[in-house]
Design a protein around this nucleic acid. Sequence first.
DNA 1: GACCAGGACCATT
DNA 2: AATGGTCATGGT
Length: 286
Amino acid sequence: MQDYDLDATLTSGQVFGWEPRAESWIGVVNGRWVKLTQTPRRGIILAQTAEPQTEWSWLADYLQAGVDLDQILATFPTDPQSRAWRDAAIESCRGLRLLRQDPWECLASFILSSTKQIVQIRQIVAVLRARFGSPVVVPAGERPAFAFPSARRLAAATATELRECKMGFRAPYLLATAQRIASGQCDLASLRQMRVADARAELVKLPGVGDKIADCVLLFAYGFRTVFPIDVWIAKALRKYYFRGRHVRAIRLRHYVVNRFGPHAGYAQQYLFHYIRTKGRVTGDT
DNA sequence: GACCAGGACCATT
DNA sequence: AATGGTCATGGT
């Protein structure tokens, strides 16, 4: 696949379940063990599964392989303030994609993400999967692998058991939300055909889910590309590039980004996020 | 040993 | 409406 940076995509803080191993990435998609390897020169992504596959649409959809990246990057804002980061971010992050993740896995992962570093979120998710996830078929010689635990499975756990996965005060949030999903009180599948605002309103009803986490799920799982999650990193970047580094309230930032970053604002957000985390130096007050 | 991490929530003003 | 404290844990 051309114009696809697998490393950047899997390490950019949108997904936490992929494990690096010897020039490859190992993960579980749709209950299937997958090993992805991107060839050095041409950037072709090779996929190995544990069992023969008759069709690959489930993986192509997950990776969003058919998305026209150039068309998306062309919509990034070109105003003078945006130009201060836009070209450099596209230059250094080109090939970064937004995945199309499973809503429950994405939602649960981001409930665990609050005030955690990405490396720690990955750790928590790994422990959670090993402890509560169903084992998946792996090729001979590969280490055991587990699917992300279902809401039903986690709803049957205790807060104490969840805390043993190092998630700390997030345990009761994850448990309560899992119970609402498992009971059908919230139907994640029904959010797909809703308008963004309505889907967000449903998500923030869930325990441990505020605007930021809801936006991440809307963008990374449901594909609402206009959604622009604002975390501490993005907030700093917005203050630097658009408010001369001065302190601006979160509510004003959220209002500011609406209709400013185009029809693929979520993509712009992810490029900005990855850019400042890997290359840029963002300073300024918090 | 501070300080912070892809926040949310609750109690005060 | 807008702060401030608190939550649990590990990296830097």
